[in-house]
């Protein structure tokens, strides 16, 4: 008796899997252009690797495994672009004040009535801008944990970072966002 093996059918890949792969990517890097590129790359790499397909997994699972590697590579690349990925610090990084608020970053009481304005269109634009302003590396981890449905463990596993690393990133992102909202909205 032979065990039925999964087969690959590249002619149907786009129809069957492209939307799924695209959504999968988008939820991880939230940049639609780059997501499209990665999906495209995945199909091309898959074509080249077809001979290595052993039929153990189904087609989609196999494609996703290739895509995952592409996403991790993409993330690593961002990680190594150090200059661009510099986040604005809110605290002294060294010296006797280490860990204390930088003077200009000390949280101020917010002037406008925050709960009334929370629904405001304009405020949503401001928060979009503030999020865009985050360095890519921080934005990615922050968005995955905050805006998309990933738990801490999943992110750490996928991006190969420790959980304390993740919290430092989220912390930097949030302190920067807080400051950005304060400067551009609440105490403008």
């Amino acid at each position: 008796m032979t065990i039925s093996k999964h087969k690959l059918n590249p002619n149907k890949w786009i129809d069957l899997h492209s939307d799924y792969l695209y959504q999968y990517t988008l939820s991880r890097i939230s940049d639609s252009e780059k997501s499209k590129d990665l999906v495209q790359d995945t199909f091309l790499s898959a074509l080249k690797a077809m001979d290595n397909f052993q039929g153990k997994a189904n087609e989609r699972t196999w494609l996703i495994s290739i895509l995952k590697r592409k996403i991790v590579d993409y993330y690593r690349k961002i990680n190594s672009k150090k200059g661009r990925a510099e986040v604005k610090m809110s605290f002294y990084e060294s010296g006797e004040n280490k860990g204390k608020w930088l003077e200009e970053c000390v949280p101020q009481t917010w002037e406008s009535d925050t709960l009334d304005t929370i629904e405001s269109e304009e405020l949503r634009l401001v928060i979009d801008l503030c999020i865009d302003y985050l360095p890519e590396k921080y934005a990615m981890v922050f968005k995955m944990r905050t805006l998309q449905d990933f738990d801490t463990e999943e992110i750490c596993k996928e991006l190969e970072i420790s959980s304390s690393n993740l919290w430092v990133i989220i912390h930097r992102a949030r302190t920067q966002l807080r400051k950005c909202l304060e400067d551009n909205w609440f105490n403008k």
Binding site: P107, Q108, T109, W110, T114, L115, I118, E119, L123, R124, I127, D128, I131, T146, L147, Q148, R174, L177, R178, L181, E182
Partner: peptide, 17 residues
């Protein structure tokens, strides 16, 4: 003041999500 503002931020981000 940070925790309170953080709550506001979380609310905003939930709307975004």
């Amino acid at each position: 003041v940070y925790p309170e503002q953080n709550e506001v931020l979380t609310k905003l981000l939930k709307i975004k999500a």
